[in-house]
């Protein structure tokens, strides 16, 4: 059984074929990274899974349910969650209030304060809980959003370049945070450019190129594949 599966997923923008017949499957408990040169269709593929865009043809199955036409919030309620590239937080609200909004829907109101304290501790943001979220450092904003995304207790967490703009130390700490979540049973799918980070977290890697699945395997298999080096570096051999 796969937790997420796409079958012949197609999306065009005008004459541009952004994803073409993408067949992709994700095993429960996996940490999977999606890489590819700019314009490979990674973000579009993500948006199709989230329901921000609807595909022209093809199917998306989540835990064996067809979610191809479901609205984004319905997908989230089924167990998907997302962390955007640009931190998607509520800047004018306090850090704590951000988490309240994320958790209030599915946590008993009596348990909510305790649950939020636990999450703040996990994110290392307990000291900043009263601050406005917009005043946090970039890395802290990213963590806050990860906190909001995992607060939903998702089966599958999608991460769009979760370490964009982070310092190397913050990137490493984020990797360790994601590994802890994975150890607790969460499946993760991340779009990422930073190969050191991919090496740190990924069990398997998929390379997208011109909207198609170009290669798939472990990070060692992918980096050893001369065809992958070629699409990243052009026709010159690496």
């Amino acid at each position: 059984m796969h937790i997420l599966e796409t079958r012949k997923l197609n999306k065009r923008f005008g004459g541009l074929h952004v994803t073409g017949d993408v067949d992709f499957a994700l095993t429960p408990g996996e940490m999977h990274c999606l890489i590819g040169p700019n314009g490979a269709g990674k973000s579009t593929f993500f948006r199709l899974i989230l329901g921000e865009h609807l595909p022209d043809s093809g199917e998306i199955l989540f835990q064996d349910h067809d979610i191809t036409r479901a609205r984004p919030f319905q997908r989230i309620r089924q167990g998907l969650s997302v962390k955007f590239q640009v931190p998607g937080i509520f800047k004018e609200l306090s850090v704590r209030q951000n988490l309240v909004i994320a958790l209030q829907h599915h946590v008993d109101p009596r348990m909510l304060p305790e649950e939020i304290d636990r999450l703040l501790e996990f994110l290392g943001l307990a000291h900043a809980q009263a601050q406005l979220a917009g005043n946090l450092s970039h890395g802290q904003k990213q963590w806050l959003e990860i906190g909001m995304a995992i607060g939903l207790k998702p089966r599958l967490l999608l991460l769009d370049e979760p370490t964009a703009g982070m310092t190397p130390d913050e990137t490493h700490a984020t990797g360790e945070m994601l590994k802890r979540l994975n150890a607790e049973g969460m499946t993760l799918l991340a779009v990422e450019h930073d190969m050191a980070f991919v090496r740190q977290i990924a069990h398997r890697v998929t390379v997208l190129h011109f909207g198609k699945v170009f290669a798939q395997g472990t990070i060692d298999e992918i980096t050893a594949d001369p065809r992958v080096a070629k699409i990243y570096l052009g026709e010159v051999d690496a």
């Binding site: 609205r71 989230i76 937080i89 004018e92 609200l93 909004i101 829907h105 599915h106 909001m148 939903l152």
Partner: peptide, 24 residues
């Protein structure tokens, strides 16, 4: 209330609010 929390969340960032599972 919880309703008000969601309302200000929509004002601040509608996409994020929807991606927390709310039918905005």
């Amino acid at each position: 209330s919880r309703f008000g929390n969601v309302l200000v969340a929509i004002r601040e960032n509608p996409l994020r609010a929807e991606m927390l599972g709310y039918d905005i």
